[in-house]
Design a binder for these strands. Structure first.
Lengths: 126, 126
DNA sequence: TTAAGACTACGACAGATGTAGTAGAGCGAT
DNA sequence: ATCGCTCTACTACATCTGTCGTAGTCTTAA
């Protein structure tokens, strides 16, 4: 039941599905940037594995091609990754924040937005 | 030169080294919680692999036991992980922030601290 | 109707990871 | 000197990941 652990490449395939919605292997493959694009069958293998993990399902068939759709949300999949990393860091989020700030990935806007979100959450929890 | 990619278990071994400073395999092994503690030789294998990756070095020998010490900092190793995850999320830190807030891992204090750190960084960069 | 393409379903394989056993050398207490 | 315990240095192996190749089936345009 918990979101299965997806590998990096599997995540990239899921990303394509989340972006475009139900797609064929071909459509997913086409979404990879020319540079470093994996072989068609490599993507196909990923889709099969995702299906085995229950992260994807065959939605329908168009002519002889299967159309796959995501069965786990982007949030659930990403959460799984973040939780794993956080656990690795002793559950502390501070190191993550600090790194994002030092590498310029986190701007003041981001912080302001986070603050707003936190306030909202606090209000709703009450 | 860039901090090598360390696996989860390798990170846990490094964590022991960062905490205790130069240690023998035995001392590292002893730091794992009884629950789910890997075999002594499993830890030993990790240390050897870390040595091969250049993340650890034999500092000295006490009687017949090797004492290993970390050659990469905790920050560098963690950064590597965060960068990887961020890349997987399209380089956006927002999803990470949102998740940490929603799971209660990020408090208002953390945000305030982040804000302060960011301001400091901005001042110094100038 | 038929030949070119597109797809599917598998099979393979190398490298990374987690996990651990074994043989034998070295140290220390008797 | 020597017996037991500790460590080291290997070896092994099952999974997971990333990467494809191939054989054979379907579709479809000429």
């Amino acid at each position: 039941m918990p979101s299965p652990k997806l590998s990096k490449l599997e995540m990239r395939v899921m990303e394509a599905l989340w972006k475009q919605g139900p797609s064929s292997v071909r459509e997913i493959h086409d979404q990879f940037p020319k540079k470093g694009k994996p072989a068609y069958t490599t993507v196909q293998t990923m889709v099969y594995r995702l299906e085995a993990k229950g992260a994807v399902r065959r939605a329908k068939k168009i002519s002889n091609a299967n159309i796959f759709e995501a069965t786990v949300t982007r949030e659930a999949a990403r959460s799984r990754w973040i939780d794993d990393v956080l656990a690795l860091f002793g559950g502390r989020s501070q190191p993550v924040m600090a790194h994002m700030i030092e590498t310029g990935k986190l701007t003041m806007e981001d912080i302001k937005e986070a603050e707003k979100l936190l306030k909202e959450l606090a209000r709703k929890d009450k």
